[in-house]
Design a protein around this nucleic acid. Sequence first.
DNA 1: CCAGTTACTTAGTAGATACACC
DNA 2: GGTGTATCTACTAAGTAACTGG
Length: 588
Amino acid sequence: SIPFSLLNLRIQVGINSNRAISLFVCFRWEEERYTDGVKWKFLEHKGPVFAPPYIPLPDKVKFYYDGKHMKLSPQAEEVATFFGKMLDHEYTTKDIFRKNFFKDWRKEMKPEEKSTIVDLNKCDFEEMNQHFKDQSEARKQMSKEEKLKLKEENEKLLQEYGFCIMDNHKERIANFRIEPPGLFRGRGNHPKMGMLKRRIRPEDIIINCSKDSKVPVPPHGHKWKTIRHDNKVTWLVSWTENIQGSIKYIMLNPSSRIKGEKDWQKYETARRLKKCVDKIRAQYREDWKSKEMKVRQRAVALYFIDKLALRAGNEKEEGETADTVGCCSLRVEHIKLHTELDGQEYMVEFDFLGKDSIRYYNKVPVEKRVFKNLQLFMENKQPEDDLFDRLNTSILNKHLQELMDGLTAKVFRTYNASITLQQQLKELTNPDENVAAKILSYNRANRAVAILCNHQRAPPKTFEKSMQNLQTKIDAKKDQIGMARRELKGAKADHKVKKDEKTRKSVESKKKALQRVEEQLMKLEVQATDREENKQIALGTSKLNYLDPRISIAWCKKWDIQTEKIYNKTQREKFAWAIDMADEDYEF
DNA sequence: CCAGTTACTTAGTAGATACACC
DNA sequence: GGTGTATCTACTAAGTAACTGG
């Protein structure tokens, strides 16, 4: 096995033969795997970085209750600042947020404060809010030297705490800072929004590292909760968060061996699905006719997961989280059946909130048999009843496991996303077009996947304006082209008369100038199309989590496009394994 | 089969930074 | 050189899925 650092060195010194590199890299990525779930043999790190302690407000920043100034105790004041900071945010207008915040805030108050402050509506956080605005303004106005100093301090912290040693490799840690205290910002209609996320102390922290490593030292006067040496897990640090009682972890960066290998494995599983997906599809179609209700439900759910790339849909504890669903947890109220709609037969209209409370809305034609089954599943049910009442993710995944080793519901999403990218790239790439146009095609292929997976984003606040600006530029460019054309024409006429070297050269240069502006216009127009089509669609999520990077690398190699054009630095680091592995004939 | 626990991936967004343009 | 905008990064919430023990 070859240490990662050595591999880096070889690449940095610039060995250009692809073959040499991939031979080399095979060793790294196909380095011996541990058995029995062992993830590492040696792990050493410096532990987490804690949130900076609370700095009390200067005396001039006042809090008013019912119009009267009130000096808050430090604990109460800290929690108050969390709210004060957020005054401009929509959250602070929401009843649940306000209610949860107030309840938790009161818990931090001294008895006198508690007896005085009984109504949030009488609290005036305005000066706090202004104070923090001033602070952030001051930060922006800092001198170059001050900014540089801050940057250097940050870098020092990163160098000290941001890396660990795992089995001979120095690896980057993803999140070495402990989450600071604040108000919980759940997504969508979350019943716990506004609750106080408490400050994490060393006494809450579990450290995981190897026995023979230098164990991280807790801050002076403190102790860790526990120190573990569990090499069957990948995390370095964990603690239990107080809102949902779930565990939070510090883990490695996506560029690390441990994450890279797992990612690679994920796509290999999806490729194995590719080999047997036809059989599985035939099977679930057969199961639509099953005598057993459970089997039919399983088969229809799987059909949705496969066709629409829906998530599995685990059960959730009611009242603990926002009301969102996936495939197995769909309720009757989330679909409408139309025997005929938009001129098509057997249409299903989906409308539900999925992960992160992102709305999934889609009208899809389905097979008659699926339609009839859905009617059957919905019979005698209330809107709030489960559509698939005999099914859950555990049943579904057990079934899938029997169809293929390692198969679970989410593999379908990975498989369908990657295969779609590959198909779309084949279809959309025009060999005759230039690089900019090819990249537009790439983005369009990427977009097709994002649409399939329903990856949305809030349209940028400045979208309309930036679109307008781009249009202005396009118009200006068109004027320029007109001008360049006229100049070329003039030069040509001149040359016709004079027929000398000077005028010939002038024609040449005018030609080039015209070509240049025409290309610039092309680029701008492509950019405009791309941006318009991308308004509400987030490409990043699929690019990072669903698309086998080897497909993209192969595409780049095939069309002689630099990897940098489609992957930025972080993405190239994450996909280092693929960049090293894939050649232009790679097929998913 | 069920509920509870744990570990890990996937997700959108806020704020920082880089970049283009005047 | 300053400003507005696009892009990147960090952050952390919200999923999936395995496992455990009754």
